[in-house]
């Protein structure tokens, strides 16, 4: 079921800004990182200049295991972009990360077999190079 790349490299690539650069640079090192507020210790994602809970601008980047569970999912059958014509059907998932409470990340599940896709399915991160500059985190089923 796994195909590489899961979605074509002609997909729109992420903007690397001052706020998001550490995230995308970590992906190139094949590491998933999440912002954590150094005042109230809460995690947040997507990256933002300040903590939405305590409004501190002070933060650090914490590497996480990349393990999580499917929070919700959708299977795209009708390609909404010409770049995706050859990629349908594909799966979009929202993953709740195991070791960053409250953090959800939008991504794809690259290898769910028929009937396997479900909410709460355990998954783990894999990385896919979209260009020499950009690597994105996707997820695969975590098998015992």
């Amino acid at each position: 079921m796994t195909r590489t790349p899961y979605l074509p490299p002609t997909m729109p690539l992420p903007a690397v800004t001052e706020d998001t650069r550490p995230f995308w640079e970590a992906c190139r090192r094949r590491e998933l990182v999440v912002q954590r507020c150094t005042r109230c210790a809460s995690f947040r994602h997507p990256p933002a200049p300040l903590c939405w809970r305590c409004r501190s601008f002070a933060h650090e980047w914490v590497a996480v295991s990349g393990r999580g569970r499917v929070f919700t999912h959708a299977v795209v059958h009708r390609a909404p972009l010409p770049a995706l014509e050859a990629a349908v059907p594909f799966t979009v998932v929202v993953v709740a990360l195991d070791d960053a409470p409250g953090v959800r990340i939008v991504s794809n599940l690259v290898d769910a077999g028929p009937g396997e896709l479900r909410v709460d399915l355990p998954v783990e991160v894999v990385f896919e190079e979209m260009s020499p500059e950009v690597t994105v985190p996707r997820f695969r089923v975590r098998r015992a």
Binding site: V106, V134, V136
Partner: peptide
């Protein structure tokens, strides 16, 4: 632009995908 970087590369490219997830 920064927010879309966490959506578009994964195929979350229109409202249909977003609302299907909800």
């Amino acid at each position: 632009d920064a927010a879309l970087g966490f959506a578009l590369p994964f195929g979350l490219v229109n409202a249909t995908v977003g609302m299907a997830l909800l």
